[in-house]
C-alpha cells in the first residue's frame, strides 16, 4: 500500500462525501460550499490522472465560476422570496382593512 493509493482513496471518499452532503443538506449555503469543495476534490482527481488541462478548467469553471453563479442565484431567490412575503403581507393587511370597513 503506497502513499498514492491512500491519496486516491482519500480523494474518492472526499468527493463522494461532499456530493452526499451537497445533495442532502437543507441549508443552501452549506450545499453550495460542499459543491465547491467537491469541485476541488475532482480537480485533484484530474491531476492524479495527469489531465492538467481538465484540472485547470474544472478548478476555474466547475468550482469557481459555478460556485459564484450558485451563490448569486441564491441571493436572487432570497430577494424574490422577500418580495413575495412582503407582497402577501400587504395584501393581507388590505383584506383585513376591508373587513373592518
Amino acid at each position: 500500500m503506497s502513499f498514492s493509493f491512500f491519496l486516491d482513496i482519500f480523494l474518492i471518499g472526499g468527493s463522494l462525501t461532499m456530493a452526499w452532503l451537497c445533495l442532502f443538506s437543507h441549508d443552501l449555503l452549506k450545499a453550495i460550499t460542499c459543491f465547491v469543495c467537491m469541485g476541488l476534490f475532482v480537480t485533484l482527481m484530474w491531476i492524479r490522472l495527469d489531465a492538467w488541462d481538465v484540472a485547470i478548467a474544472e478548478a476555474a469553471i466547475g468550482a469557481g465560476l459555478t460556485g459564484a453563479l450558485l451563490l448569486s442565484s441564491r441571493r436572487g431567490l432570497k430577494k424574490t422570496a422577500a418580495k413575495k412575503e412582503s407582497g402577501e403581507k400587504r395584501s393581507g393587511e388590505k383584506k383585513s382593512g376591508e373587513q373592518d370597513v
Partner: peptide, 18 residues
C-alpha cells in the same frame, strides 16, 4: 507548449471580470 489554452484563459479572465 503545455497545459492551458483558450478556455482556461477565458475562465480566469472571467473570474477577474466577476
Amino acid at each position: 507548449y503545455s497545459p492551458g489554452g483558450a478556455f482556461q484563459a477565458g475562465a480566469l479572465i472571467a473570474g477577474a471580470g466577476i
